[in-house]
Design a protein around this nucleic acid. Structure first.
Lengths: 138, 138
DNA sequence: TTTGGTGCAAACTCTTTGCAGGGTC
DNA sequence: GACCCTGCAAAGAGTTTGCACCAAA
C-alpha cells in the first residue's frame, strides 16, 4: 500500500486513497472495462464516483502505470500490465484475457524492423486474437 | 454499379440505391469512420441519414462484404477489404491506413498454430501498429 | 500555501432502436 | 403482395467536462 503510494509519487501523481484503491482493483482483476473496475472499487469505497474512476484510470495510463485499450465493442479497457502484451478476445462471451508471448512480440517487431514502413515511427503494437473458446476456461 | 447490385443479391441483401452508394463510398475511401462515410455519401445523396448509413455498414459487414473494427479512440471504422489485413494507426493525426503484409500474417498464424491456445478457436487476428508518421504521407 | 484531485451533475459523442412509410424482389 | 429497407426522432451507452470543495505536498 505504501509501495503503491510511493509509485505514484515517483510518477508525479498525488497519492490519494482513491488512486490506491483503483490501482489495487486493477491489480486484482488484471484487465477490465471501466464498469468492472467501478464495481470492484465500489466494494471497497462505495462513495467513489464513475467520473473519478475514469479520471484516475486516465492519469494512471498517462503515467504509464497501466495500459489502455479499446475492445472490439469499442469500450474502454484498462490493463494492469504496462508491458507489451496482447489480448485474446473471445467472441462467445465477450471476455478478454491477456496473451503474453514475448517471442511472438519480438517476431513481429523484427519483421517490421526489416520492412520498416517509411516515415513511420513505431511506438506500440496491439494484437488481438479473436475467436471462440470451445471449452470452459478460468 | 450493376455488379455491385448483383453482389448484394448474391449475399441476400436487397440492392437499394443507398447501399450501392455506401459501398462505393467505402471503395473510394478504403477505410473510414462512419462520419467520413456519411460525409462522402452525402456528397452523392444528401438525403440519406446517419442511422441508415450505420445500418447499411452493419449489414454489409454482417454479409462479409466489408470489415469492421474499432480504433484506438473507440470509434467504429469500416474497411472495404474483407480480407485479412492490418492497420497502421497514426497517433499524430489519428489517421488509419491499411497495412497489408500477408507474410507477417502467416508468420503470426503459424506461430499461434504451433502454440495453440487450448480450447481457443482462432477466427481472426487484428494487428494495429501504433506510432507517428514523421513525414508527410499520402 | 500551492497545487492538483475528487465528486457531482450535466453535457457530449457515438451508436442503436422502434416504427411508419416506401422500395425491391 | 410479402418482405426488407429507409428515414426520422428519440433513446441509450459510454465517456468527458466544468466547477466548487477538499486533500496532498
Amino acid at each position: 500500500m505504501d509501495k503503491v503510494k510511493e509509485l505514484f509519487r515517483e510518477n508525479g501523481l498525488k497519492a490519494t486513497a482513491q488512486r490506491v484503491i483503483v490501482y489495487q482493483a486493477l491489480e486484482k482483476i488484471g484487465h477490465a472495462s471501466v464498469d468492472k473496475v467501478v464495481e470492484q472499487v465500489a466494494s471497497v469505497m462505495p462513495t467513489i464516483t464513475v467520473a473519478t474512476v475514469y479520471k484516475i484510470l486516465e492519469s494512471l495510463s498517462g503515467a504509464g502505470l497501466i495500459s489502455k485499450m479499446h475492445t472490439e465493442q469499442g469500450k474502454l479497457f484498462y490493463d494492469k500490465t504496462p508491458t507489451l502484451h496482447h489480448h485474446i478476445y473471445s467472441s462467445n462471451d465477450n471476455s478478454i484475457r491477456d496473451f503474453i508471448d514475448p517471442e511472438l512480440t519480438s517476431i513481429i517487431i523484427d519483421h517490421l524492423a526489416k520492412k520498416s514502413i517509411d516515415g513511420f515511427e513505431l511506438e506500440d503494437i496491439s494484437l488481438q486474437l479473436i475467436g471462440k473458446f470451445t471449452k470452459e476456461q478460468n
